[in-house]
């Protein structure tokens, strides 16, 4: 974005100040998953690249980038472990059995354990 600007004045006041503009499938309505990365907050520590089991992230030039965003299964590992809160994802268990069971019982979403898969 404003990479060419060397000015030291504070950023203009915008909606979501400080977060910058998110990228990723979740930043668009109807995206295949809810994963969003806020590059402005990223410091390039590489934790997301380390924890993601589907190699969605790669740190390039000191910032995380999504190289395989569609493979995201919304486990939430990247969001949990990002020390800068630069990643957002509506994480949850992608299990139809649990979701259908919960819908039929009218309960909140059940996950693996005593109350499900039994």
């Amino acid at each position: 974005m404003a990479e060419s600007c060397n000015c030291t004045s504070p950023k203009p006041m915008l909606i979501g100040i400080g977060d910058g503009v998110p990228v990723g499938p979740g930043s668009k309505p109807g995206g295949i998953n809810t994963l969003m990365l806020f590059p402005d907050k990223c410091t390039g520590c590489g934790r997301c690249q380390q924890v993601c089991p589907h190699r969605v992230f790669e740190v390039k030039g000191g910032k995380a980038a999504m190289v395989n965003a569609d493979a995201c299964m919304e486990c939430g590992a990247c969001m949990m472990n990002c020390p800068e809160s630069a990643i957002k994802v509506d994480s949850g268990v992608g299990c139809a059995m649990a979701m259908i069971k919960a819908a039929l019982k009218g309960s909140k979403e059940v996950t693996c354990g005593d109350d499900c898969c039994n």
Binding site: S91, V93, A96, A98
Partner: peptide, 15 residues
Amino acid sequence: LNFTGSTPYASRTGV
């Protein structure tokens, strides 16, 4: 469809 939870691929949005 019910096999989704047994795999390491399914996302909640997708399911």
